[in-house]
């Protein structure tokens, strides 16, 4: 017989007996509203990170079409395309990634405090 694998949680505090956030969120309309606000907040963080990334990736090729000389431009003797695609584009992408991690963890911490206040 096939069995679905689901995750056990390890290394978490045993809160058996204490009403957990999961019970709270599925209990009533208020709980579901809380859940909706958590998901919306997370989506907001996602959009605020992916928005700049999409602009960066989509606008540069578009700029190359609108400004045909762009490919021939050079930065201290190195073609601009090499400077951007060969390296320059990565630091902002990586920075966005780590910034998202911080933002999402902050958001979850605040949501936890909100639940604990109840």
């Amino acid at each position: 017989m096939r069995q679905a694998v689901r995750a056990p949680t390890r290394g978490t505090i045993d809160r058996t007996g204490v009403p957990g956030g999961d019970d709270l969120l599925r209990r009533d309309e208020y709980g579901r509203a809380l859940l909706g606000s958590l998901i919306r907040a997370q989506l907001g963080a996602t959009v605020s990170v992916l928005g700049p990334a999409v602009l960066l990736l989509a606008l540069y090729p578009l700029l190359a079409v609108l400004v045909p000389g762009l490919g021939r431009d050079q930065v201290i003797g190195v073609p601009l395309t090499l400077v951007v695609l060969g390296g320059g584009i990565y630091p902002p992408l990586v920075a966005l990634g780590f910034w998202y991690v911080r933002r999402a963890e902050q958001l979850e911490r605040r949501f936890g405090e909100l639940l604990d206040d109840r």
Partner: peptide
Amino acid sequence: HLPERLRRGPVGGA
């Protein structure tokens, strides 16, 4: 969407 540490006991089944 709920962080693991906010859940009660083992979550997601056994």
